[in-house]
């Protein structure tokens, strides 16, 4: 068993931080993509929830998938809470997230193509193409059946290739 995992499960928070450190930038990117300006709070809630649930974590599962699945639940919770907030706060959440100021023309093309997709499609592409999750893992994180994930990915790829390269598979 991984030493950091064993120590973290025994209640050592430094070992827990070391254990998760390779995943934190990608995890924060995933949360930011899903919940925008609520990301910092949801990120903290996710790590606290993971810490509390860690004693029950079984090593035969992937720690990264487990962590992202918790983040998926926390994002869904935050979005539900947000939908009950007054309209003014909703507009604040819709404000642009910084980080694209120095994009190349190619990235801007991809971003424009991505923005034509619904949020679930963008989340799925992020998990698979940025974080390298398998389709089965992405299905678990997003809480969507594997067959739906396969079909969605097929259509998303075709749509993006049409937009970016004018090609058909």
């Amino acid at each position: 068993m991984d030493t950091n995992l064993r120590l973290a499960q025994a209640g050592n928070p430094t070992a827990f931080e070391r254990l998760l450190s390779p995943y934190l930038a990608g995890l924060y990117g995933f949360i930011r993509k899903r919940v925008g300006q609520m990301a910092e709070d949801v990120y903290q809630e996710t790590l606290l929830a993971a810490w509390r649930a860690l004693p029950g974590f079984k090593e035969d599962a992937s720690l990264k998938t487990w962590l992202y699945a918790i983040a998926g639940y926390k994002c869904a919770d935050a979005l539900r809470r947000q939908s009950r907030q007054p309209r003014q706060e909703e507009r604040q959440e819709d404000a642009a997230v910084p980080g694209f100021e120095e994009d190349s023309a190619q990235r801007l093309d991809v971003k424009a193509a991505l923005s034509s997709l619904d949020q679930e499609g963008q989340d799925l592409l992020y998990l698979v193409y940025s974080e390298g999750f398998t389709q089965a893992e992405a299905a678990r994180i997003l809480g969507i059946p594997l067959g739906t994930i396969k079909s969605r990915l097929y259509h998303l790829r075709r749509h993006l290739k049409d937009r970016l390269e004018g090609e058909r598979p």
Binding site: A25, G29, Q106, R107, V110, Y129, S130
Partner: peptide
């Protein structure tokens, strides 16, 4: 090409995460 462009675009969006929650400690 599509896979590489998507990966590059998503990776370029990543920012440093906030500090680890002190409440956990």
């Amino acid at each position: 090409r599509l896979a590489l462009r998507l990966h590059d675009t998503f990776q370029a969006e990543l920012t440093a995460p906030p500090p680890f929650p002190q409440a956990l400690y």
